[in-house]
């Protein structure tokens, strides 16, 4: 049985350069993950602030033995965003595309595909594989039954499942942080930096519901997919993606590593995760083909 790899997904939130530096330094030194996706995927306006951080972060992670992949914007919306995507794709580094805007610039180079690209079936997966895709993190709403079908049909591609973190549910042309604070997107004052795990959105009855992060809408709850090594292998899933939050991601990755090695049961893993200061409940409905908000078993 091949080992299940662990990936740390890109940070969705507007973290300060200092926070990013500290976070990745600790990941490099302490986190037992195989791959780290870095870069801004949500809002191009944040790039001028966090761009200077990446060269150091990439070097530090690489030296620590991690595979580093640069993630690109999910919704490039202006000429500056488009140029940024193009420059990254043509730069020769390993790239994760999150929008097909990146395709012409990728040329014949291999690339990874993020969960923002619509790969819902084996036809789309093999189309992208023929164009150079070697790792595909499937869309979050895809049930495991479909994941298995797709993975079995494309054995040459590494399939990754979004296994931990608030679910990225939608992106918009509109910035909800700006809208909530009565600001215009073009003069947003970058107030999304106040909510390093996203800003909670409740229903009128006070139920935890969603979280906003600039133009992005996430679930309030956290996805948890904690398969046994056999379950993951049977589906053809070879990698799990852990999405960064402000809680101790080193601890999260350690729990998942034990799970993937068969040293901890799925139930034990979820119990240990629940001991961490999670920003929301644990859900796993999408994996089961039902409402994504359905609570995960204890």
């Amino acid at each position: 049985m091949t080992d299940i790899a662990l990936s740390l997904g890109p940070v969705f939130f507007n973290w300060s350069p200092d926070r990013l530096r500290d976070f990745y330094a600790r990941i490099a030194d302490e986190a037992d993950v195989d791959r780290v996706f870095v870069g801004e995927v949500v809002c191009g306006k944040r790039m001028p602030f966090n761009d200077p951080v990446w060269p150091d972060v990439v070097e530090r992670l690489t030296q620590a033995g991690k595979t580093v992949i640069l993630s690109t914007l999910a919704l490039p919306s202006n000429i500056r965003d488009r140029k940024a995507v193009k420059a990254l794709c043509e730069g020769g580094a390993s790239i994760e595309i999150n929008d097909l805007t990146a395709m012409p610039a990728m040329g014949a180079a291999p690339f990874a595909v993020g969960p923002f690209v619509n790969v819902y079936n084996e036809g789309a997966a093999s189309f992208l594989a023929n164009r150079g895709a070697n790792l595909i993190c499937l869309p979050v709403e895809l049930p495991l039954s479909s994941v298995g079908t797709i993975a079995r049909a494309c054995p040459d591609v590494t399939f990754e499942v979004f296994a931990f973190g608030r679910l990225p549910l939608a992106v918009s042309g509109r910035c909800y942080h700006a809208r909530l604070h009565g600001l215009h997107k073009d003069s947003c004052q970058f107030i999304c930096d106040r909510d390093p795990d996203g800003l909670p959105v409740d229903t009128l009855d006070g139920q935890d519901f969603l979280a906003i992060n600039g133009i992005q809408t996430l679930s309030h709850s956290l996805q948890v997919w904690s398969p046994s090594p056999e379950e993951a292998a049977n589906l053809g899933v070879r990698s799990l993606r852990l999405s960064p939050h402000t809680l101790d991601m080193v601890a999260v990755s350690a729990l998942y590593r034990r799970l993937c090695r068969g040293e901890a049961s799925p139930q034990e893993t979820r119990a240990k995760l629940r001991e961490l200061p999670l920003p929301g409940a644990l859900v796993d409905g999408f994996t089961r083909g039902i409402a994504g908000a359905a609570k995960a078993a204890s």
């Binding site: 999910a74 919704l75 923002f116 619509n118 869309p139 979050v140 709403e141 679910l167 549910l169 939608a170 992106v171 918009s172 042309g173 509109r174 969603l210 809408t217 679930s219 409905g285 999408f286 409402a291 994504g292 908000a293």
Partner: peptide, 12 residues
């Protein structure tokens, strides 16, 4: 208001 084809709010 969300980018169409990129929204899983309903299935959530």
């Amino acid at each position: 208001p969300m980018t169409e084809g990129r929204c899983s709010l309903s299935s959530y």
